[in-house]
Design a protein around this nucleic acid. Sequence first.
DNA 1: CTACACAAAGTTTTT
DNA 2: CTTTGTGTAG
Length: 1034
Amino acid sequence: MENRNHYEELFKKEFNKLNYQQKEAVETIENPVMVIAGPGTGKTQVLSLRIAQILKEGVCDAENILCLTYSESGSLAMQKRLSKILGPTASQVSIHTFHSFCNRVIYENPSIFKIRNELELAETIDQYEIIEVLLFNLDESNLLYKHDRNYTYDLKKIHHLFKSIKEEYWDIYKINESINKEIINLKTDDRFIYKRNSKEYKKGDLKQKAYDKEVEQLRKTQSVLELYPAYVKEMKQRDLYDFNDLILNVISEFQINTSLKSRYQEKFQYLLVDEFQDTNGSQFSILKLLTDLWKEESNIFVVGDGDQAIYRFQGANIANLREFEQIFKPKVIELRENYRSTQSILNLAEEFIQDSKERFTGRNTGALHSNSLAEDTKSILITYDTANAEYSDVSDKIELLISNDKVDPVDIAVLFRNNKDAELITKELSNRNIPFSISKELNVIEHPLVHFIMKILEYIEMEYSNPLDNEYTFYEILHAPFIKISALDIALIAFARRKLNLSDPNNSLRKRLSSKEFLESSNVSDVKEVLEVAQIFEILIKEKNDHTVQKLIENIFYQLKVIHFITSTDNSLELMEVINSFYEYVKALSIRIDNMTISDLVQHLNNLKNYNLNIPFVSVSGTKDKIRLSTLHSAKGLEYKHVFIVNAIEKGRKNSNSFKLPPGYSFRNDDTEEEDERRLYYVGITRAKEKLQLSYSTKKSNGKDQKPIDCIRNLENSEFLIHKQGKINEKQTLSSLEIKLSPLRKKYELLSDDKIEQFLETFSLSVTSLEKYLQCPLAFYYEKVLRVPGARSPYMGFGRAIHSALEDWVKNSDSLKNFDSKIFRELIESKMRIYRSHFTKEQFDSFLIKGQSELSRFIQINYHEWGSALKIEPEVNFKNQFYKGVPLSGKLDRIDEYSDGIVVIDYKTGNSDSDSLGKKLKAANDKNQLGGEYWRQMVFYSILNETSKIYRPWKEGIFYFVISNKKDEFVKKSISITEEDKSIVKSQIVDTYAKIVNKEFTPGCQKPECIWCSYLETGVIRIIEEDLEEEDYD
DNA sequence: CTACACAAAGTTTTT
DNA sequence: CTTTGTGTAG
């Protein structure tokens, strides 16, 4: 009883604090009510007090009240607030998200919803995997078919389309029909009709090319739609459901099963809905179904604010607010008293939103009225040159707030549009030792520590099934920060191996690392450490099958002293959280996958990576004493004294991630982006209680200009915003350089001069080494000087097999007289078998088919022409050539001799459709002083021919693309070479060789995509494919 | 107006 | 890799 009185007192006290409109909302418990609640107007308080009021009046019990929220966090916040006011009774009130409510309905009625087995929530990765299998099984004639089986890009688009089909309740057969109609309609569409005469065409003619392209796009969509039924079937087969299924299933059951619906209608007599503006169509349908018994007399209470509708992209619609008004004729109450922000902030927010065309604000407009007692200062907009300057300056300001103004870090938030913006800020904050908490999904899978653990797992698995054949992975692993072999020792090992026959298993990295003699003769400084590491890996591989995956990971942690390493670093807490996130993810996964093996895990993790999905970062240290980093979206509902909104720039508005749909169908939020953006920043601004700073930078990282978001540009003359120009001082530039040095990076040291001189003794410049050095000197150092093992790719295996097959075929003198397709096909197959390890099974099959059919056609088209050559010589090796003292070498695919000179032929096995082809073939000019790489290759060959004088003079250089392009042509490019071309490349040769002799390898090219340059920055090494051409080292 | 070459971009979030 | 926007020449 005492307790009860306590809560009654509490209610009275809280109720008395409310303003007139709030009280009205709390007290109106019968019939539909719609509360328009702007930001900071106390809606959660109103919702909870209203529930208390319903119970106080005794019209029903706590279990007859259903409170629906949009998000889990909203539901949690609601629960907390309610317990405060109601005490234990609060737990009897049903507080659900729409999804958990539907889940409850399904599980309360297993027989009705025909739940066979325990259903499991489909993660995005499950859906991707299902779609990928469907794509793998495609017929060669399907428009979506790709012979390299790389469907990464299509996967996303297909997933997006399938999701929309469910969200929008689309009928795939109807879409299909619309496409058929559209294809006919397009023939008379203005867009595809010539509007005037020209040489080639007449006014009124069909633009065939453009039309065909459009039709192909629509047909592709049809091919995707064809996969949909199989997708749905496979989801059922695996007992998987997705979030849309939850709601859709309940809707369709409520529609046909009146008695089921009635049971819930009777149970829940009082409905309350929070964040109503964020409900989507199907969620609203649930509400309509639950209330269709009483309609305008329903006790339904919704709280929403059209200006804060930011989930449009996933189906939420402001129209729901209007429709609610029409259907339920509710009493509308507007809350316009704001208890959070200063008036300046509210005025600014209003300026942001006032130009919105589509607003639902109820009767009143204008800024909310502030009740804040805080000092009212104007908000600031700062423009910086670069994002680095911006984040650095914002971090400085935060540091000052905490140290000088003694602001509690939890009162500070940095808000941004995209999660990836967070990464740069976290680096700046880490540098200043400012602790932060982040909303979620810092990409743990890309974190260096996780990367290395994944690589180790992958290596153990591969080495177990395919021993001594996974060099490059092992080489990468040695660079892990927790492995105490110095970077110099690794380089010495690589250098000592470069002259060995690497295809001999006895020379494999794994074997050599266990050999004391080898290590000592390589001048390795810490032989003992290397032997120890090698020994640990031997045991891990040997015992692979003796442990569960979890135990194996623990063993890796323990044996390689990962935890010990982490605790020795400055940011050990963050690193522990990263490792813990990974470990927790694996644990959860092992529950989902029965008897999970390492190969299951490795495959799963690689899929995550390939699909660009994340392992969520789980923080265990809480948010205490930390500033908050959050996306604008997830900042909703929260408030901070100091808010920094950064990187407020206009986004590139490309959506290449959707298939073309016929008229009448469109992906959500296609045409309302500007409005959505406005509301999003409105939400951001209204998070601030006292001080707000907006900022953006005018230049992208690549130096190109960028503009701020639209609504900022409209605020040029706002009286509520002070414009400032951010300056870069020297300290800031310095710190933006510092962030590039990760603590996880091993100390970097170049090989000693005598080693490099040793390298130069046998080095001769080939076109690939020249190219490599010009691309990136650091890459040259690693790939050519150290010769680190390269990764394999199917493209490389295919290229080598094809080159080798063509060589053999040309060698046979009968070949050119008579083309025997059967023998040729067999030749290709036998060559591909040699490079078997470059392919997965599926890849091997489709590359083989592709290679056989394309090459046969290629040869049939060309071999007559080749017949007129006096002599054809494949695989010509130029050795011991010199130009101005530079040793040159080269391996040419083929030289055809004619009476008037030689034709040098180079086969290309890659795609000739590529955009960059033209650039690669282009000679050097003022704009591009280097010139294209294919151009340089041919010029280099002509220089070799000139210095060697073995063959007749140069006549022509030809690139043959042996795979047909989209237009089904085999592209053939002839390069004409001038004396000027030769002199340019000659000077490139001399310059480059001089730089190599001078040991100029650092700093590399500094391009962000360069693996070696980024290795120096981050300590993570990710080896990609080897060069196509293998060089001689004898 | 049309064709072609070239560069840029690939969300945001929740369940 | 694919789509889309921009720039340029005809």
